[in-house]
């Protein structure tokens, strides 16, 4: 369609672009620029070349934060995506499961901070629900200081993450299953295939495209995890749950090292972009079965 006047399209795009440019585009570029400087946020800028980047690769806490986030991402692929897939399989195999679908999805609605505060109580070593529950069923020896023990803290955060997001991935897979033509499934049933076989041999392969997107979402979202970690441990104990984002915030806001923080942010952005790029490469190679 040809616009009335040559400039009207720009008028339509302008408000959106203005907000987007001021709030995101310009800061993205400026963050990149700042990453080559030393700046405390108010004084003069000092150009430092790649010094911040070199420092980042020698910063043991920063480097280890990527290992932590890797563990978290692997755990959440299992606890969120795989659990979501299994749940979706379960709730779509039988009638009368609306209640479960609604229940499993509830945590997705709530602010992560609220959930984190709630779970910090559940895991509280002195009056928490979990340790009290273990006592009640005679498993007192299993009691732990869940968030204060380097062996369990990261895992506990991953499990909470699974508690929240398994329902989300369930909803995605459920919607995917719902779009599989019914006659395919029905004819398999008539051939005597059990629900598990139908799930494994038919449903799962048929939602492959969705699975791939779900994993990408889980990975790129997982690398950026902040709210949960900030509230539950803020990187502790002894930096064993430090993730790139929590360290970034400490560097910029506690230590006032804006330039260095910007370099850490750029590295994180590049990592996320690389994951996305790598992923789309891999996906192109696999056959495209899309619905």
């Amino acid at each position: 369609m040809k616009p009335n006047r040559g400039w009207t399209p720009y008028l339509f795009v302008l408000p959106a672009f203005a907000v987007f440019a001021i709030s995101i585009l310009l800061p993205v570029i400026a963050t990149f620029g700042l990453s080559f400087t030393r700046w405390d946020g108010s004084g003069p800028l000092k150009f430092k070349g790649f010094a911040n980047y070199i420092r980042a690769f020698h910063d043991s806490v920063y480097v280890s934060s990527y290992w932590h986030v890797l563990v978290y991402v692997v755990a959440t692929i299992i606890l969120e995506v795989l659990a979501g897939l299994l749940l979706a399989g379960a709730v779509s195999a039988r009638p009368g499961t609306t209640f479960y679908r609604v229940a499993f999805f509830v945590p997705v609605m709530l602010p992560l901070v609220v959930i984190a505060v709630l779970w910090s109580f559940v895991l509280n070593p002195d009056f928490g629900l979990l340790n009290a529950g273990l006592d009640a069923v005679g498993l007192s020896s299993w009691k732990r200081v869940w968030l204060g023990d380097p062996n369990t803290a990261l895992l506990a955060i991953s499990v909470i993450s699974g508690w929240i997001f398994a329902g989300f991935y369930m909803a995605i897979f459920y919607a995917g299953f719902a779009r599989i033509p019914k006659d395919i499934i029905e004819s398999a049933r008539l051939d005597g295939a059990g629900e598990w076989t139908i799930f494994r041999r038919m449903k799962v392969p048929l939602v492959r495209g969705i699975t791939e997107i779900a994993i990408l979402l889980c990975v790129t979202g997982g690398v950026q995890v902040f709210d949960l970690v900030f509230v539950l441990t803020n990187g502790g104990p002894y930096n064993t749950t430090e993730v790139p984002t929590t360290y970034l915030v400490k560097t910029v806001f506690r230590d006032q090292e804006v330039g260095y923080g910007a370099a850490l942010a750029v590295i994180l952005t590049v990592v996320i972009a690389l994951i996305g790029l790598l992923y789309s490469r891999l996906r192109r190679k696999t056959a495209d079965v899309e619905f």
Partner: peptide, 24 residues
């Protein structure tokens, strides 16, 4: 070009801009 920039916005994580955004 404009649409490409907006599309880029779908991919950019918050960490890529919040530091400079804060200063701005």
């Amino acid at each position: 070009l404009l649409l490409t920039l907006f599309t880029l916005g779908l991919l950019l994580p918050i960490q890529s801009y919040f530091i400079a955004q804060n200063s701005l």
